[in-house]
Design a protein around this nucleic acid. Sequence first.
DNA 1: AGAAGGCCCTGCGTGC
DNA 2: TGCACGCAGGGCCTTC
Length: 276
Amino acid sequence: MPELPEVETVRMALVPALNDRFVTTAFVGRSDLRWPLPDRLADRLVGRRFGMPSRRGKFLLLPLDAGETMLLHLGMSGSVRIHDNAPQLATHDHFMLEMAPEQESGKPSFVVFNDPRRFGWIDLFQCDVHPMLQAMGPEPLGNEFSEAYLTAALSNRTGPIKTALLNQQIVAGIGNIYACEALFYAGISPRRKAGTIAGKRAQRLAAAIIKVLRAAIAEGGTSLRDHVQPGGEIGYFVQKLAVYGRAGEACNQCGAPIRMISQSGRSTFFCSHCQR
DNA sequence: AGAAGGCCCTGCGTGC
DNA sequence: TGCACGCAGGGCCTTC
């Protein structure tokens, strides 16, 4: 499910639930997610205080006291729910935190992590940057990301641009939906060799990536299948998708049917008339 | 080094 | 109604 806009939506919802609040209880259901959960995770969290949640690419970084940080990746099917009453745990609820009552409302918060496919990932780390995040490319909504950066990062790459956009070392946070959408708005074929993206094309692509991610965040992300925001609301960006999931339907710009192809084992949706 | 495919796992829709 | 198959928002690992 979750690409940058969905993870950002989760991050924003976690701020009031976690920031400057203490863990009362921690629950671990299954500990065999993508990788085994850290040893004694629940014990190590009780009594700790969280700081301000941040995000890097599709990773959530939840700082604790004593310089430690909890890392959370939602994988393909992970989601977070936040309740102010003790929830009935459901199938695939693998992890839960109960946070001490907030001063103003006097209410606790319950943060639940659910992940049917268990591609999600939870870790605790002490260093400044988690080893797995060392090589990650710049944030597309940050200052380092630009036409010039994109041109340099893509130069000499012979694979298709669509595949390059999914590479987190080139740009952080883009997944299958927004790679397709950004290429549509940039008018670039997903099959074009990445190394040929420069000048005007790089300018259009950088702008399209920023535009589509910002728009999706503003709509609360894209809800496909069972994905919802932490409060249970759905994200409305799904209604604005121009190509993703629309194989055979008419292109909004030219009316030609949207095509679906497979690239590196992932589905790609595009308009072969508008994208060159 | 970069590209492409396999694999991890469960659930759901489709077609027979 | 039941079953087999393919596909799903990610990312690491192996192979070429």
